[in-house]
Design a protein around this nucleic acid. Sequence first.
DNA 1: CGGTAAATGTTGTCATGGGCTACAAAGTAG
DNA 2: CTACTTTGTAGCCCATGACAACATTTACCG
Lengths: 201, 201
Amino acid sequence: MSDVTEERPYHHGNLRAALLDAAERVLRERGADELSLRDLAREVGVSHAAPRRHFPDRQALLDALAESGFAQLDAALRSALADVDEDFPSRVKATMTAYTRFATENAALLELMYASKHRPGATGIAKAAEAPFGLMSELITQGQDEGALQAGDPERIGIVLFATLQGIASMINGNFVRPELLDALVETAVEQLLRGARPLP
Amino acid sequence: MSDVTEERPYHHGNLRAALLDAAERVLRERGADELSLRDLAREVGVSHAAPRRHFPDRQALLDALAESGFAQLDAALRSALADVDEDFPSRVKATMTAYTRFATENAALLELMYASKHRPGATGIAKAAEAPFGLMSELITQGQDEGALQAGDPERIGIVLFATLQGIASMINGNFVRPELLDALVETAVEQLLRGARPLP
DNA sequence: CGGTAAATGTTGTCATGGGCTACAAAGTAG
DNA sequence: CTACTTTGTAGCCCATGACAACATTTACCG
């Protein structure tokens, strides 16, 4: 058996991942304002300056969290789409529900993801956001192919759809709308999309 | 003539307003993260602990800014509505344009307004938000009265509309969409509302 | 008026945290 | 085995938020 007093090695091994893990937990439990690099270092059991090797400053950590958030969101959306029928209305509704679920269950994370002031050269975030954005475009394209939606730039329609979802989540996360209304609002949004963007008779 | 060396009186007179003013400027120029009570105190010319009398802690200041933001937003929307025709489509479009304009020109402020973690008992913000929210509901009601929109809970439709606008602004403020696309996106959103929520033939 | 309580500002202090530099240990390649 | 690089440590400075004790105005009330 190894020593009971678990000597920590000088090198952590995968400090970056451990920090992100801890950060995600703190973010969820106490919000972005409470995120302190020193605190994370303590939790992970390294010196207060160790995180610096992986995140030059606090904002770099926040950006990394945001980037990871888009990846998680993309995974959530694709997972939701995997379990649903082929027809367009079902797929739209499943996607919208999955988005708002994710967004309301990860309120602080979403706030980071859409924060206006990422560091100038944070290309990683934009890149990571392309995955879910693209998914939305594909979905719209599918709807157009099926004849459920009128022609038009799928990206533009997708962005508006995305925006509506994000906005609904904001309303709930900001406590302006009771969470119980979430489903009804999503339902309304789905109906309006299907009716508002369908082909002219 | 009074003394040239402008002796500052012990009592500022309207410190609270002065602080909010300075805070709004800093918020616009450098973002919420850069807002420091001590810095504001310096700018206004009072001691570092003076703001405490008016804002018990930093969050209280942020909440006050958010509250003021909703009042300004409400004023902007009503002002836009005052200069436009009576017909529903014009009014909707004017309102939506005014909202997204305000939201993109005051990105950091909007972020504060919809931040998920206001202090528990910040009833002031919710109260202030009721004004613009109500405006949106009234607008929907008008549309229904004119027969441009189908029946339905005006508040629910209004919230979805509001959410869409806020979402579009988020996309632009978060740098996921080029600002030049703003008008086109609003246009799309307007059309979808008018088509998606109009009465069945 | 005049005196007292409440508001409002000031000074001084502490703990926390970000960011920096110099140094140490562990891995890696020649 | 010896350099070189990566990763973590120790210690410092400084800004800030929060707090307490004290000072000055202002407001109110007899």
